[in-house]
Amino acid sequence: MRDQGKAAAVASDLPIPVAHQFDDARQQHEAAAMGMWIFLATEILFFGGLFTGYAVYRAVEPQGFHEASRHLDLLLGTLNTGLLLTSSLTMALAVHSAENGLRRPTIGWLLTTSMLGLGFLAIKGYEYAHKVHEHLWPGPHFVAPPDASRGFEQFFVLYVSMTGLHAIHMAAGLLVMWVMVIILWRSRHVARHSNFVEMFGLYWHFVDIVWIFLFPLLYLIDRS
């Protein structure tokens, strides 16, 4: 179905250039998607090491993790999850607009997506500052409550490394997104860049999926 949409966009616009090693635009698109998913597989395992470490420490020190999790701000965590889910919707709409050769909507949705991403990082930064203030930032100034169980500080080490690696991915995504907006802004032919927009979209959705798992594992350890 998507290919029909592409064909319609191509018919009303200039043809999409096909690199000489590909038979046609369809094969070029499949190769790009496959390459992007291979990159995402390495990213899954990159984050996977941290998730595995989390699973081991949580299995060993369940009580410390339970206590530490309650020190995270659930309202801000939920709000941030909502922002990221919304940014995935706007990213999907940007890809959809690019495939249909609609230049202004593509740029508009990309900028909307980047604003939602910036909002996420701003809230994350506020949470980090708050943790430093409460002496719950891992390091020499960390002070656990006197009755804290073993594993309390380990939770915050994992919280900062996992959300920090995720935030770095968001920041890198924002930079690429703004470069993409500049390229689209200067181009008269948006469908020509639709593979670029779509493959970037895969990255952005992947970062969203990482947060979909981080949120319950870090913020939602049994609040009852």
Binding site: R2, E30, M34, L40, L89, M91, A92, G201, L202, F206
Partner: peptide, 19 residues
């Protein structure tokens, strides 16, 4: 849906499941 696996070719879905 958002990452288009529903309209992807089997080999792309295979690589996604590989990770």
């Amino acid at each position: 849906v958002f990452m288009h696996l529903r309209s992807s070719t089997p080999i792309v879905i295979l690589f996604a499941l590989g990770g």
